[in-house]
Design a protein around this nucleic acid. Sequence first.
DNA 1: GAGCGGGATTTTAGCGTTAAAGTAAAGAGT
DNA 2: ACTCTTTACTTTAACGCTAAAATCCCGCTC
Lengths: 334, 334
Amino acid sequence: MVRMADVAREAGVSVMTVSNVVNERLPVNEPTRARVMAAVEALGYEVNLTARHLRAGRTDTVAFIVPSFHDYFGEVSDKIAPLIEAEGRHLVLERTSGSPEHEMAALSVARLQLYDGVLLSVAGLDRDQLDRVRTTKPIVLLGERDVPDRFNHVRLANEEGARLATAHMIEHGSRRIVGLGCTFDTAHMMTSDRRIGWERAHRDAGLDVDARYVVPISTFTSAAGRDALLDVIASGLPFDGVFAVTDVVALGAVAALAESGLRVPTDVQLAGFDNLDMSSFVPPGLTSVDANHEGVAETAVGLLHRQMAGWTGPAEHVVAPVRLVVRGSTRGGA
Amino acid sequence: MVRMADVAREAGVSVMTVSNVVNERLPVNEPTRARVMAAVEALGYEVNLTARHLRAGRTDTVAFIVPSFHDYFGEVSDKIAPLIEAEGRHLVLERTSGSPEHEMAALSVARLQLYDGVLLSVAGLDRDQLDRVRTTKPIVLLGERDVPDRFNHVRLANEEGARLATAHMIEHGSRRIVGLGCTFDTAHMMTSDRRIGWERAHRDAGLDVDARYVVPISTFTSAAGRDALLDVIASGLPFDGVFAVTDVVALGAVAALAESGLRVPTDVQLAGFDNLDMSSFVPPGLTSVDANHEGVAETAVGLLHRQMAGWTGPAEHVVAPVRLVVRGSTRGGA
DNA sequence: GAGCGGGATTTTAGCGTTAAAGTAAAGAGT
DNA sequence: ACTCTTTACTTTAACGCTAAAATCCCGCTC
């Protein structure tokens, strides 16, 4: 390993002068600078980031900590990365599997030291656990769980999105809409909020809310969505609409409906949530609540930058607006 | 920040004893150990990982460097993570956008220092550029590009997979199969290899290879796949099969066919490559070449572990076997 | 020609940890 | 009683870098 000291010896200057050249901190005379640069090239020197970090107390790196790397989080991460890089920092992703233990470990003193700031997509921790986190490190929380006031937080208008999607299907003739995965669950505020929206759309339209149409799913996967809807079909419960709690789950519903010979949107209307890249391509086009990933990314990164720049005002709690993207899976579509 | 020195003072021992308790390196008498642990708890001490790294020369972290976070790479990352964690290390993801500059930067001396090992999915660098990388850091390269012998490398049986998929469609009656995205391109060995497989399937069956059926696409996205296939349809070129270079592109083809009123598999058979999670749910089920993400992950991580454990034998170049998963989008399916 | 201002460069002093060598005291062997 | 081990803990010396203070050198003033 080539050290600054090696470069300094080669160039006949002190280590500090090399540091000043490399970091462009204090001005260095041109002839000296040239000699140092030549030595850097000749030896192939590159700074030791760990040593710099220890000494300077800054890593120029931001972590985005997610439950899993695929689907929704993968797409959001790709929006966040350029925003972080635009400020000259690196973005790294870490995975928690959504477990409270992993999320807590990610917020531990030891791990937070590795980053200048952290974006955490909360899936497992509750308000009390988060309240135990003591740190001044810039942190922005994402996701639908309840969090302490002192953290910056960005979440989606879940209830409104679910209401929009459900109301849209009611407007176009559906009367028995399955809420696929819309369970009332303290562990998943997201599903609870979306269920409330599903209910409100019914009430707003003067329709009964029938608990049999709330169908729980074991995990938020397409496979679970498909299986759950197949069970509904097999049970004989009549339905003419499906609001799936996420697009991934909706894709499972698409498969279940196709296998069962039910036509979309003629027999059953279908809407999801997240508006993933794939959603516009799955025939006949999946109507979905668009959460504006890009806007969410900008908001979250903006709050983080503000904190990293030294802002100490009160934390913000942003509810990102949503809109309904109507496609062929509902009758309002093209 | 609480330092080891603070714990040492609190417990009335030397810093080194604290270190020995925390790391369980040298044995410490039980009463002393208990006092140190009590002080650790009382002060909320956690080790400074940066300092440990600088001193010990080890980060217990592995990086997986990918072109982008979504789709294929997101799914593979989720397979890799548990394998790295099983050995007590952390996995972090970094993104290169597939650009040679970013990939080269990720392999720079400075950045490699941050990790005990690196998995790099090569998308932009060519053999010569990779050959300029001088390091003894454990590295495993993934992907379809040509790489120097001295690197461990895992790639897929691209040609064989493309041949399998194409031959399967020929066997079930297709005679004019579009190779969607299967261009001959030095920048993308992946597409070239898959094109060769597409060609070989034709020759094996005694069919002509018609260059008009090789359709280039601008990017490997569903949107590009859809647009390109719509152009083919508009051009009037007759076809009865589509082999898409990836499942993401195949999804675009699904959309184009549906919009154009072409039935799958009756009018047109369709097969993709990668067997993503979504592929089994998109009606009528996407026939796809399965690259066995899990097996690829195990192989790559195995090679990395071997290197991190000190193995200095010759590098291995693994070609991961593929198999065809037949679903409803081709006529052999259920 | 003594004194001063200021740019260029070096010296000093760690950042928080750990490998290795050192010391002190208790126990074992002859 | 004196070595010889063994156990328990401490001291020393970095790892490679940089903020801040100190020094050096030069031209310039009066």
